[in-house]
Simulated assay, not measured.
Amino acid sequence: MAKSTQRKKNLFERFANWATIATGSSAAFIAATVVIIVWIVTGPIFKYSDTWQLVINTGTTIITFLMVFLIQKSQNKDSKAVHLKLNELLASHQGASNRMVHIEDLTEDELDKLARFYIKLSKLAEEEDDITCTHSIDAAEENHNEKLSSLKTKKHYQNALISRSKKSK
């Protein structure tokens, strides 16, 4: 990328960050409220004319039009930052599936398939008495069976089973 193009991009990035902060502030809300109040107060002076109405309509339309793009840019940046943070957590966690990194690029059908898988994991987890049990997307069934076998030898699990059977009687 050329140096002048990069400089323009950085300038726009700084302006967009400033504009996002400025327009999301209390001062911006107060300024917008003052503009509306001034417009309302000037209504009788301009006899509520079409021009008087056009001023506020045109002004708010232009601001809304520009804000849509500013909000979208801000949302894109925030979303990218959140995805990168989540990707780092997934990549750094021993039991997490690395296949989950960057899933935001999957199709809707692929995401639905993953959602169904996690519903299945949730149902498996509901069958267990230990809330600390987790499952990986890569080895869910195997992990579930291993954890269940391991839990059956633990005292707290056996006590929970006894307690559950007493409650059901």
Rank of each mutant, 00 (worst) to 15 (best):
L66A: 14
G59A: 10
K47G: 08
I137M: 08
L66W: 06
L86Y: 04
E142Q: 15
N17C: 05
R99H: 01
R7N: 13
T107H: 09
L148Q: 09
K73E: 01
D109T: 13
T64Y: 04
F12D: 06
S25D: 04
L114W: 00
T42E: 07
D138W: 01
N76C: 10
L111Y: 00
F117E: 04
E127Y: 01
L148F: 01
F29I: 10
I36F: 11
I119Y: 03
K152L: 04
S79T: 13
S122C: 06
Q72R: 14
E108Y: 03
K123W: 00
W39I: 02
T23F: 10
H156I: 01
G24L: 02
K77I: 03
G43C: 09
E128M: 11
Y118V: 01
K73F: 00
S136V: 00
K154H: 08
T20H: 09
K80A: 10
V55M: 12
W18V: 00
N98T: 05
T64V: 05
S150Y: 01
A2Y: 01
A140G: 15
L124R: 15
I45P: 08
M67R: 14
N10H: 10
T134R: 14
N76Q: 12
G95V: 01
T51H: 12
N145A: 08
K3Q: 11
D130L: 00
I103G: 13
T132Y: 02
H144N: 06
C133Y: 00
I119L: 10
H102Y: 02
V41C: 12
S4G: 11
A16V: 07
A96N: 13
A2E: 04
F29C: 13
H135T: 03
A19S: 10
A96D: 03
L148C: 09
I21K: 15
K73H: 07
K154A: 09
D105Y: 06
K155P: 06
H135L: 05
W18P: 00
S74F: 02
I21N: 14
D130E: 02
F46S: 13
D78F: 10
L111H: 07
E104G: 13
S165H: 08
L114A: 10
D130N: 12
S97V: 02
T60L: 09
W39N: 11
M100W: 01
S26H: 11
L124V: 04
K113Q: 10
V41K: 15
A139E: 02
H93N: 12
A28H: 06
I137L: 06
K169L: 00
E146K: 15
S168Q: 13
S150F: 02
Q6P: 05
H135Y: 04
S92C: 11
E126K: 14
T42G: 08
A28V: 00
L11Y: 08
D109N: 14
K152P: 02
E127L: 07
H83Q: 11
K147Y: 06
K9P: 00
F117G: 06
L106R: 15
T20D: 09
D112M: 08
T64I: 05
F29R: 15
